[in-house]
Structure formats: structure tokens, C-alpha cells
Design a protein around this nucleic acid. Structure first.
Lengths: 189, 189
DNA sequence: GCAAATGCTTAAAGCCTGTAAGAAAGCGAG
DNA sequence: CTCGCTTTCTTACAGGCTTTAAGCATTTGC
């Protein structure tokens, strides 16, 4: 029974990697245990249950995504900031589809206050500093930006754009131009 | 062993209803069988397997959604059409969260050509008739619209907008205004 | 009315989650 | 160093879900 050096952190990391490989939905406690050369029951010393594991992966993904977005945003403003943020978001989702799916989990109640949620909102709001938007338009714009990014990435990774020859990259770029346009001409409430 | 009158259509319908009640992910062959007062194995005479069932629900949802969208679009043009289409989309998702989740399934390969996918694309393109958009901007705009609708609805139902007092309806309305603005001022390629 | 097709049941294998009880490994004193 | 406490892992097991196979029952149609 040599110990395998399992910790909650390593489990989370491994689960995230596994999610990127085989899909978040297919990450199971059993598969994870197999990867550590350990019986499934052993993992329950480190995680509460399967949902707990998924929430940890979600929080990991949110934190990583926030880090990337923050790095992309540093030193930029206006459309530059918008494009850098959006690309960081999309690139992360493409590199880490499993993690990205995890980040989409509903994790109301408990965990979200753990920094990640707030960071995302603040960063999206930071993008808008380059545009002159007053409340409540600012909140509306934050929601629209988030929706467009998430919607695009989500449809693209689900294969929604593969039935038309137009490159997904080109439409993405056009969409960002369009968002910039609308932020500069935000309609009055 | 009185027969329960199970058919693939009834199963699909019941599965869709069940999805709206308990969530698409929680719809299982067993639960469905229970609802029909039948053993799980009995359902395999009508459906190939669990995935087949989910695909059928997805196609049902896509067809229903397309019907609603078509009805909303009839006789309208320009911003009127945009708003009606968008609201039909969002309302359907809110009324039928399970079906809507099903519609988001990846169903590449096989089933999509079954009309629904094409209908959606054509309708979104119909909205753009009221705006003067040439290819490839038209395709880009279709993708942006779809992304924004899906992203907004998806984030809203996942509870993403509940942490801020601004009403989700108000931001939705503002987002539609913004989309109308950007379609009328589509940036040059 | 009888045979073939169809719908349902039982049985069983395989995989997953999660709990409980116990063995083994590591750790911190004394 | 060694005794005992804590932690980690194992086995065992209960309960669910999926799916296949074999068989009985009910319909259907000739």
C-alpha cells in the first residue's frame, strides 16, 4: 500500500488535465483514481464527493482564466484592451476545452465569492473604462460582452461554425470590430 | 405484462418534459422507464441507447425552437424582426430549460441535416434582410447574433446575472438595442 | 385460429458513486 | 528508537444506471 502522494490539489490538477483530454462530463472519480494507481474509495479522503471535485476544477479554471485575462489587459486600453481580453478568453477555451466547460458550472451558493467571480466582473468593467459608458449602460455592456464571448466560444467549440466555409477566426475578428463599434456608439437608455 | 403503449415519439416527448423538470443531464433511461411504469430494458426496443434518446430530444427542441422563431419572424422586418426573433429564442429557453440544454448538444455527423440546423441559419439570415449587409459580413453578423443570443440566455439561466441588482430583462433589451445599432453601422471588412 | 412480429420481463455483466471497517504507513513525542 | 495517533489506502458492499440476451406474452395479419 505504498502511498501515492495524492492531495486535493493534485487531484484537481489531474482532473482538469483529464477534462481537457476526454471532456469535463467524462471525468469520473474512478477514472481519476485509475490515473493515480489507486482505488476509487481512496480519493474520498481528499475530496468530499464527485461534485466537490468538479467545483474545484471549475474554480481552478476560473482562476487561470482570470490570470490570463489580467495579463492580457495590462497596459492596454480601448479597443486594444477589448481585443486582448477577448482573445485571451477564446484562446483559453480552445486550449483547455475541459477546463472551460468546468468554468461554466453553476456554482452559486458556496464557492464563487472565492475571488474568481469578482475578478472577472472587474476586468470586464475595466475594458469599458476606455469607452464612455454610464450606469446602467455599463452593466448592460458588461453582460453583452460576456454573452458574446461566451456564446461565440461555446458555439465554435461545439462545432456550430463548421458548416460554412467562412473561417471562424475571421468572424471572430469582425465580431470584435462590431463590439468596438457598438461600445463607441452605445444607444441611450 | 399489459403493454404500456410506448413509442419512440412518446419517449422523446416524455424525456423532453422530464428534462425541463429535472434538468437534461438528469434524464436517464431508468427514470424515463419509471415514468411509463415499465422496466428500463423495455425502452431499448424503441431507442438505440441513451445517446439516441438525447439526440431525439435535441432534434425535438431544435424543431420547436425553429417553429417559434419562424412564427415570431412572420410579417416583421428590421429591428422588429430582430427583437421578435431574439425574444422567441430567450422565452423558449426560459420556458424549456431542459429542452434548450438538449438543443446545445453536439450532434455533428448524423442528425443535423434533418432540417432544423438549416432552418435556424436561414432565419437568422432573414433578420439581416432588413439591414444592408454583404457577404462575408453577413455570415459574421449571423454568427455574432447567434453567439449573443445563446451566450446571454446561457449565462442568464446559469444564474450569472443574479449577483447584480440590474434586471436581466433591462440588460437584454439594451443588448438588443446595441445589436440593432451595430447592424446598422456594420464596420467595413 | 395460428404463426410471425412486437413489446415486455427477468437475468446478468460492467461501470460508477459513496460508506464503513480495518490494515499499513508516516509522524511526533517521550 | 519505539509507542501510539493520524492519515492514507484497501477491501467489501450497497445501490444506480446502461445495455445485451433469452424468453414469455400479446398483437397482428394471413
Amino acid at each position: 500500500m505504498a502511498r501515492a502522494g495524492v492531495t486535493a490539489e493534485r487531484l484537481t490538477q489531474a482532473a482538469a488535465d483529464l477534462a481537457d483530454e476526454i471532456g469535463f462530463q467524462n471525468v469520473t472519480v474512478s477514472a481519476l483514481a485509475r490515473g493515480f494507481g489507486v482505488k476509487p474509495a481512496a480519493l474520498y479522503s481528499h475530496i468530499k464527493d464527485a461534485r466537490d471535485l468538479r467545483v474545484r476544477v471549475a474554480l481552478l479554471a476560473l482562476a487561470e482564466l482570470a490570470d490570463r485575462a489580467a495579463a492580457a489587459l495590462a497596459g492596454r486600453a480601448g479597443k486594444d484592451a477589448l481585443v486582448a481580453f477577448a482573445n485571451a478568453y477564446r484562446d483559453y477555451a480552445k486550449e483547455h476545452p475541459g477546463r472551460y466547460a468546468a468554468a461554466q458550472m453553476e456554482l452559486d451558493s458556496e464557492a464563487l465569492p472565492t475571488s474568481a467571480g469578482r475578478r472577472h466582473a472587474e476586468m470586464t468593467r475595466a475594458i469599458l473604462r476606455g469607452y464612455e459608458l454610464q450606469e446602467p449602460g455599463q452593466t448592460d455592456a458588461v453582460r453583452m460582452l460576456h454573452s458574446t464571448f461566451h456564446g461565440y466560444v461555446s458555439l465554435e467549440t461545439a462545432g456550430g461554425f463548421r458548416r460554412h466555409p467562412r473561417e471562424a477566426d475571421a468572424s471572430w475578428s469582425a465580431t470584435l470590430d462590431a463590439l468596438d463599434t457598438v461600445l463607441r456608439n452605445w444607444p441611450a437608455g
